[in-house]
């Protein structure tokens, strides 16, 4: 192979690497699935989300909405936003101060169900969609009996 060809190949490689250098890699796709909104309208999905909430050890950090290691979910303070699309992103991709990412452990549908259940904790869903009394030790009023928290603060 002539040295001219070698130089050309090297140049081409450098140029291609340059394209790679400029490539944007995002942490994940934005949560703009309009169908996602529908999960919080459905009592079955909210109930499934509640089961996942226990199974995935969410209670270990967020308790039954009151928080502990992680922030409370039944109040109206939202560090990363309280709209269902924002909650979905927090669960799917995780957050840097300790929230783990669940995208490799749960299906997309399960993450939407979890997000829908989180919305019910501060009663941001309809009363007849939010879960009723727990089978386990009572931690306070059932989701359906809670007052709706004050209007959402805009996400930071």
């Amino acid at each position: 192979m002539s040295s001219a060809w070698a130089r050309f190949a090297l140049l081409a490689a450098l140029l291609l690497a340059g394209c790679e250098r400029e490539k944007r890699v995002y942490s994940g796709q934005p949560a703009t699935n309009p169908a996602g909104e529908l999960y919080q309208e459905n009592a079955y999905d909210v109930a499934q989300g509640k089961r996942l909430y226990t199974w995935m050890n969410c209670t270990g950090c967020h308790a039954h909405g009151g928080g502990g290691i992680g922030p409370a979910l039944m109040d109206n303070r939202w560090i990363y936003g309280g709209k269902i699309q924002q909650i979905y992103r927090s669960i799917r991709d995780g957050r840097k101060n300790g929230m783990p990412a669940w995208k490799n452990r749960l299906t997309d549908q399960q993450i939407w169900q979890l997000a829908a259940y989180v919305r019910s904790m501060g009663r941001y869903v309809r009363k007849d969609v939010a879960p009723s009394r727990d089978d386990a030790l009572n931690s306070g009023k059932a989701e359906s009996r809670r007052e709706r928290s004050a209007p959402l603060e805009p996400g930071r």
């Binding site: 928080g67 502990g68 039944m74 009572n138 931690s139 809670r146």
Partner: peptide
């Protein structure tokens, strides 16, 4: 943590029952 982590004390199990 009930104070520092702003636990919502309506949940009696918050902060592993410290709420």
């Amino acid at each position: 943590a009930v104070l520092t982590n702003r636990v919502d004390v309506r949940d009696s199990t918050g902060a592993n029952g410290m709420a």
